[in-house]
Design a protein around this nucleic acid. Structure first.
Length: 292
DNA sequence: AAGCAAGACAACCGCTGGTTC
DNA sequence: AGAACCAGCGGTTGTCTTGCT
Protein backbone atom coordinates (compact mmCIF):
# COMPACT_ATOMS: atom_id res chain seq x y z
CA UNK A 1 0.00 0.00 0.00
CA UNK A 2 1.26 3.47 -0.93
CA UNK A 3 1.09 6.09 1.81
CA UNK A 4 0.35 9.65 0.82
CA UNK A 5 3.33 11.98 0.99
CA UNK A 6 3.28 13.90 4.25
CA UNK A 7 2.62 17.62 3.71
CA UNK A 8 5.43 19.97 4.55
CA UNK A 9 4.98 22.30 7.51
CA UNK A 10 6.92 25.12 9.11
CA UNK A 11 8.86 27.98 7.65
CA UNK A 12 8.79 28.57 3.92
CA UNK A 13 12.00 28.43 1.90
CA UNK A 14 12.95 30.94 -0.80
CA UNK A 15 12.41 28.20 -3.38
CA UNK A 16 8.88 27.52 -2.21
CA UNK A 17 8.12 31.25 -2.23
CA UNK A 18 9.31 31.50 -5.82
CA UNK A 19 7.18 28.55 -6.89
CA UNK A 20 4.12 30.06 -5.26
CA UNK A 21 4.70 33.50 -6.77
CA UNK A 22 5.21 31.97 -10.19
CA UNK A 23 2.04 29.93 -9.89
CA UNK A 24 -0.10 32.89 -8.86
CA UNK A 25 1.40 35.09 -11.57
CA UNK A 26 0.44 32.40 -14.08
CA UNK A 27 -2.98 31.35 -12.83
CA UNK A 28 -4.07 34.27 -10.67
CA UNK A 29 -5.18 34.41 -7.07
CA UNK A 30 -7.89 32.07 -5.82
CA UNK A 31 -8.80 28.40 -6.25
CA UNK A 32 -6.42 27.65 -3.43
CA UNK A 33 -7.15 23.94 -3.41
CA UNK A 34 -5.50 23.73 -6.84
CA UNK A 35 -2.50 25.87 -5.99
CA UNK A 36 -0.26 23.25 -4.32
CA UNK A 37 -0.63 20.95 -7.32
CA UNK A 38 -0.14 23.69 -9.92
CA UNK A 39 2.81 25.17 -8.08
CA UNK A 40 4.40 21.82 -7.37
CA UNK A 41 4.40 22.52 -3.66
CA UNK A 42 4.09 19.92 -0.94
CA UNK A 43 1.99 22.28 1.16
CA UNK A 44 -1.69 22.40 2.07
CA UNK A 45 -3.89 25.02 0.39
CA UNK A 46 -4.27 26.93 3.66
CA UNK A 47 -0.55 27.25 4.04
CA UNK A 48 -0.21 28.52 0.46
CA UNK A 49 -3.02 31.01 0.87
CA UNK A 50 -1.64 32.34 4.13
CA UNK A 51 1.88 32.65 2.80
CA UNK A 52 0.63 34.62 -0.18
CA UNK A 53 -1.77 36.88 1.69
CA UNK A 54 0.49 37.62 4.64
CA UNK A 55 3.90 37.71 3.07
CA UNK A 56 4.29 37.38 -0.68
CA UNK A 57 1.43 39.48 -2.03
CA UNK A 58 2.61 42.72 -3.64
CA UNK A 59 1.85 46.02 -1.87
CA UNK A 60 2.15 44.49 1.56
CA UNK A 61 3.44 47.17 3.87
CA UNK A 62 6.25 46.09 6.16
CA UNK A 63 7.85 47.81 9.09
CA UNK A 64 6.49 49.64 12.06
CA UNK A 65 2.94 50.87 12.31
CA UNK A 66 2.71 54.64 12.17
CA UNK A 67 1.05 56.64 14.92
CA UNK A 68 -1.88 57.33 12.61
CA UNK A 69 -2.28 53.65 11.85
CA UNK A 70 -2.24 52.74 15.52
CA UNK A 71 -4.73 55.49 16.31
CA UNK A 72 -7.06 54.27 13.59
CA UNK A 73 -6.58 50.67 14.67
CA UNK A 74 -7.64 51.47 18.23
CA UNK A 75 -10.72 53.34 17.09
CA UNK A 76 -11.68 50.61 14.63
CA UNK A 77 -11.19 48.00 17.32
CA UNK A 78 -13.48 49.97 19.62
CA UNK A 79 -16.05 49.87 16.87
CA UNK A 80 -15.57 46.40 15.41
CA UNK A 81 -13.90 44.28 18.06
CA UNK A 82 -11.53 41.53 17.01
CA UNK A 83 -12.58 41.61 13.36
CA UNK A 84 -9.04 41.77 12.15
CA UNK A 85 -9.75 41.40 8.47
CA UNK A 86 -12.15 44.34 8.58
CA UNK A 87 -9.67 46.46 10.48
CA UNK A 88 -6.85 45.46 8.14
CA UNK A 89 -9.06 46.35 5.20
CA UNK A 90 -8.93 49.95 6.33
CA UNK A 91 -5.20 49.99 6.90
CA UNK A 92 -3.79 49.90 3.36
CA UNK A 93 -1.00 47.38 2.94
CA UNK A 94 -1.50 45.78 6.32
CA UNK A 95 -2.68 42.20 6.72
CA UNK A 96 -5.09 40.86 9.28
CA UNK A 97 -2.26 38.80 10.73
CA UNK A 98 -0.09 41.90 11.09
CA UNK A 99 -2.85 43.80 12.79
CA UNK A 100 -3.68 40.92 15.07
CA UNK A 101 -0.06 40.35 16.04
CA UNK A 102 0.53 44.01 16.62
CA UNK A 103 -2.59 44.31 18.71
CA UNK A 104 -1.79 41.29 20.84
CA UNK A 105 1.78 42.34 21.51
CA UNK A 106 1.51 46.11 21.74
CA UNK A 107 -1.83 47.82 21.90
CA UNK A 108 -3.55 45.56 24.38
CA UNK A 109 -0.81 46.01 26.93
CA UNK A 110 -0.67 49.76 26.48
CA UNK A 111 -4.44 50.00 26.61
CA UNK A 112 -4.62 48.08 29.87
CA UNK A 113 -2.32 50.62 31.39
CA UNK A 114 -4.13 53.61 29.90
CA UNK A 115 -7.56 52.18 30.81
CA UNK A 116 -6.51 51.83 34.42
CA UNK A 117 -5.51 55.47 34.50
CA UNK A 118 -8.65 56.60 32.69
CA UNK A 119 -10.97 54.59 34.90
CA UNK A 120 -9.35 56.22 37.89
CA UNK A 121 -10.04 59.68 36.51
CA UNK A 122 -13.49 58.96 35.08
CA UNK A 123 -14.80 57.33 38.23
CA UNK A 124 -14.12 60.55 40.01
CA UNK A 125 -15.66 62.84 37.41
CA UNK A 126 -18.37 61.14 35.37
CA UNK A 127 -20.84 58.32 35.71
CA UNK A 128 -21.93 56.78 32.41
CA UNK A 129 -25.59 55.84 32.26
CA UNK A 130 -28.28 55.35 29.66
CA UNK A 131 -29.22 59.01 29.81
CA UNK A 132 -25.88 60.38 28.71
CA UNK A 133 -25.20 57.85 25.96
CA UNK A 134 -26.30 59.06 22.55
CA UNK A 135 -28.82 56.88 20.78
CA UNK A 136 -28.72 56.58 16.99
CA UNK A 137 -31.79 57.39 14.91
CA UNK A 138 -32.48 57.60 11.20
CA UNK A 139 -31.16 60.50 9.16
CA UNK A 140 -32.09 61.93 5.80
CA UNK A 141 -29.90 62.95 2.87
CA UNK A 142 -30.09 65.13 -0.16
CA UNK A 143 -27.95 65.43 -3.24
CA UNK A 144 -26.54 68.55 -4.90
CA UNK A 145 -24.11 69.23 -2.11
CA UNK A 146 -21.00 71.28 -2.11
CA UNK A 147 -18.11 69.83 -0.19
CA UNK A 148 -17.21 73.19 1.25
CA UNK A 149 -20.61 74.40 2.39
CA UNK A 150 -23.04 73.44 5.07
CA UNK A 151 -26.63 74.54 5.06
CA UNK A 152 -27.43 74.39 8.73
CA UNK A 153 -30.99 75.48 8.35
CA UNK A 154 -31.73 72.45 6.22
CA UNK A 155 -32.07 69.42 8.39
CA UNK A 156 -31.84 67.23 5.29
CA UNK A 157 -28.30 68.20 4.54
CA UNK A 158 -25.57 65.67 4.91
CA UNK A 159 -21.90 66.28 4.28
CA UNK A 160 -19.22 63.68 4.16
CA UNK A 161 -15.65 64.61 4.92
CA UNK A 162 -12.91 64.29 2.35
CA UNK A 163 -15.34 63.67 -0.44
CA UNK A 164 -15.73 65.69 -3.58
CA UNK A 165 -19.36 66.43 -4.27
CA UNK A 166 -20.04 67.90 -7.65
CA UNK A 167 -23.47 69.29 -8.35
CA UNK A 168 -24.34 66.30 -10.47
CA UNK A 169 -23.41 63.68 -7.97
CA UNK A 170 -25.27 62.32 -5.05
CA UNK A 171 -23.40 61.58 -1.86
CA UNK A 172 -23.78 57.95 -1.06
CA UNK A 173 -22.30 56.47 2.05
CA UNK A 174 -21.65 52.81 1.60
CA UNK A 175 -21.44 49.98 3.96
CA UNK A 176 -18.62 47.60 3.23
CA UNK A 177 -19.90 45.00 5.62
CA UNK A 178 -22.97 42.87 5.23
CA UNK A 179 -26.58 43.27 6.13
CA UNK A 180 -28.65 41.06 8.41
CA UNK A 181 -28.73 38.33 5.78
CA UNK A 182 -24.95 38.52 5.41
CA UNK A 183 -25.32 39.94 1.92
CA UNK A 184 -23.28 42.93 0.90
CA UNK A 185 -25.31 46.05 0.38
CA UNK A 186 -25.08 49.68 -0.43
CA UNK A 187 -26.96 52.26 1.55
CA UNK A 188 -27.76 55.33 -0.48
CA UNK A 189 -29.58 58.59 -0.19
CA UNK A 190 -32.92 59.29 -1.80
CA UNK A 191 -33.50 61.36 -4.88
CA UNK A 192 -34.73 64.92 -4.56
CA UNK A 193 -38.29 63.82 -5.31
CA UNK A 194 -38.13 61.30 -2.55
CA UNK A 195 -36.89 63.99 -0.24
CA UNK A 196 -39.90 66.13 -1.04
CA UNK A 197 -42.08 63.21 -0.03
CA UNK A 198 -40.13 62.75 3.12
CA UNK A 199 -40.50 66.36 4.15
CA UNK A 200 -44.20 65.79 4.43
CA UNK A 201 -43.59 62.61 6.35
CA UNK A 202 -40.71 63.27 8.72
CA UNK A 203 -41.02 59.95 10.50
CA UNK A 204 -40.35 58.05 7.33
CA UNK A 205 -36.73 56.97 7.23
CA UNK A 206 -35.29 57.76 3.84
CA UNK A 207 -32.26 55.55 4.11
CA UNK A 208 -32.42 52.84 1.46
CA UNK A 209 -30.47 49.65 1.17
CA UNK A 210 -29.44 48.20 -2.16
CA UNK A 211 -27.84 44.81 -2.58
CA UNK A 212 -24.44 44.67 -4.19
CA UNK A 213 -23.42 41.89 -6.51
CA UNK A 214 -20.64 40.02 -4.85
CA UNK A 215 -17.66 39.21 -7.00
CA UNK A 216 -14.08 38.20 -6.52
CA UNK A 217 -12.89 41.78 -6.25
CA UNK A 218 -15.51 42.98 -3.82
CA UNK A 219 -13.11 43.39 -0.95
CA UNK A 220 -13.63 45.90 1.79
CA UNK A 221 -10.83 48.00 0.39
CA UNK A 222 -12.44 48.04 -3.03
CA UNK A 223 -15.80 48.89 -1.60
CA UNK A 224 -14.29 52.00 -0.11
CA UNK A 225 -13.39 53.38 -3.48
CA UNK A 226 -16.15 51.98 -5.65
CA UNK A 227 -18.12 54.42 -7.73
CA UNK A 228 -21.70 53.63 -8.43
CA UNK A 229 -23.09 54.85 -11.69
CA UNK A 230 -26.67 53.85 -11.16
CA UNK A 231 -28.97 51.81 -9.02
CA UNK A 232 -32.03 49.75 -9.81
CA UNK A 233 -34.45 52.16 -8.20
CA UNK A 234 -32.76 55.30 -9.49
CA UNK A 235 -30.95 54.72 -12.79
CA UNK A 236 -29.82 58.33 -12.87
CA UNK A 237 -28.18 58.29 -9.49
CA UNK A 238 -24.46 58.79 -9.58
CA UNK A 239 -22.62 58.63 -6.35
CA UNK A 240 -19.31 58.96 -4.67
CA UNK A 241 -18.89 56.32 -2.08
CA UNK A 242 -17.63 57.09 1.37
CA UNK A 243 -16.44 54.63 3.92
CA UNK A 244 -18.61 55.24 6.97
CA UNK A 245 -16.12 53.78 9.37
CA UNK A 246 -13.33 56.01 8.19
CA UNK A 247 -15.59 59.02 8.13
CA UNK A 248 -16.66 58.04 11.58
CA UNK A 249 -13.07 57.95 12.66
CA UNK A 250 -12.32 61.35 11.25
CA UNK A 251 -14.29 63.17 13.88
CA UNK A 252 -14.22 61.79 17.34
CA UNK A 253 -14.05 58.81 19.60
CA UNK A 254 -16.54 56.31 18.24
CA UNK A 255 -17.06 54.68 21.60
CA UNK A 256 -19.16 57.63 22.67
CA UNK A 257 -21.86 56.56 20.23
CA UNK A 258 -22.17 52.97 21.22
CA UNK A 259 -24.94 52.22 23.64
CA UNK A 260 -24.69 49.56 26.29
CA UNK A 261 -26.34 46.83 24.25
CA UNK A 262 -23.88 47.34 21.45
CA UNK A 263 -20.98 47.27 23.79
CA UNK A 264 -22.15 44.01 25.22
CA UNK A 265 -23.00 42.11 22.07
CA UNK A 266 -20.34 40.19 20.17
CA UNK A 267 -20.95 42.02 16.95
CA UNK A 268 -23.42 44.45 15.54
CA UNK A 269 -24.90 44.60 12.11
CA UNK A 270 -24.10 47.00 9.35
CA UNK A 271 -27.43 48.62 9.85
CA UNK A 272 -26.32 49.43 13.37
CA UNK A 273 -23.10 50.79 11.96
CA UNK A 274 -25.05 52.78 9.45
CA UNK A 275 -27.21 54.24 12.17
CA UNK A 276 -24.16 55.07 14.20
CA UNK A 277 -22.74 56.86 11.23
CA UNK A 278 -25.90 58.90 10.87
CA UNK A 279 -25.77 59.80 14.51
CA UNK A 280 -22.18 60.87 14.30
CA UNK A 281 -22.92 63.12 11.36
CA UNK A 282 -25.90 64.54 13.16
CA UNK A 283 -23.75 65.39 16.14
CA UNK A 284 -21.43 67.27 13.82
CA UNK A 285 -24.35 69.42 12.71
CA UNK A 286 -25.61 69.94 16.21
CA UNK A 287 -22.16 71.23 17.06
CA UNK A 288 -22.28 73.44 13.98
CA UNK A 289 -25.66 74.84 14.90
CA UNK A 290 -24.48 75.72 18.34
CA UNK A 291 -21.56 77.61 16.90
CA UNK A 292 -23.80 79.82 14.74
C1' DA B 1 29.77 34.53 27.41
C1' DA B 2 25.77 31.96 28.95
C1' DG B 3 21.15 31.57 30.32
C1' DC B 4 16.73 33.22 30.58
C1' DA B 5 12.54 36.06 29.60
C1' DA B 6 10.00 38.81 26.69
C1' DG B 7 8.89 40.45 22.20
C1' DA B 8 7.83 39.85 17.37
C1' DC B 9 5.84 37.56 13.83
C1' DA B 10 5.19 33.52 10.81
C1' DA B 11 2.50 29.62 10.55
C1' DC B 12 -0.94 26.21 12.05
C1' DC B 13 -5.51 24.69 13.63
C1' DG B 14 -10.32 24.54 14.19
C1' DC B 15 -14.41 26.52 13.12
C1' DT B 16 -17.99 28.87 10.30
C1' DG B 17 -20.53 30.13 6.40
C1' DG B 18 -21.21 29.84 1.47
C1' DT B 19 -21.58 27.04 -2.65
C1' DT B 20 -22.22 23.03 -5.33
C1' DC B 21 -24.00 18.67 -6.36
C1' DA C 1 -32.60 18.73 2.18
C1' DG C 2 -28.26 17.62 3.30
C1' DA C 3 -23.59 16.05 2.51
C1' DA C 4 -19.19 17.41 0.73
C1' DC C 5 -16.16 20.72 -0.44
C1' DC C 6 -14.00 25.17 -0.22
C1' DA C 7 -12.46 29.86 1.29
C1' DG C 8 -11.76 32.72 4.88
C1' DC C 9 -11.42 34.13 9.63
C1' DG C 10 -9.74 34.46 14.44
C1' DG C 11 -7.34 32.11 18.15
C1' DT C 12 -3.32 29.91 19.28
C1' DT C 13 1.25 28.01 18.97
C1' DG C 14 6.05 27.74 17.51
C1' DT C 15 10.29 29.74 16.57
C1' DC C 16 13.59 33.19 16.04
C1' DT C 17 15.48 37.55 17.84
C1' DT C 18 16.60 40.82 21.24
C1' DG C 19 17.60 42.54 25.66
C1' DC C 20 18.68 41.93 30.34
C1' DT C 21 21.05 39.80 34.28
Amino acid sequence: MEWPVRLRKGAWTREEDNLLIKCIQQHGEGRWHQVPLKAGLNRCRKSCRLRWLNYLKPNIKRGEFTIDEVDLMIKLHNLLGNRWSLIAGRLPGRTSNDVKNFWNTNVQKKRKYVDKEEVKVESETKIINKNNILKPRPRKFTKNLSSSTMNNSDDQLMLFPNCDASSSSMMMPISSLTNHQNKPFVAFSPTENENETNKSNPDNSSCMMMPVHQNDHMSHENLMSIKISSTESDPNAVGTVVDPILSFHNHKDTSAFLDEEMWNCDSFSDLDLWNLFHKEQEETFVGCDQNH
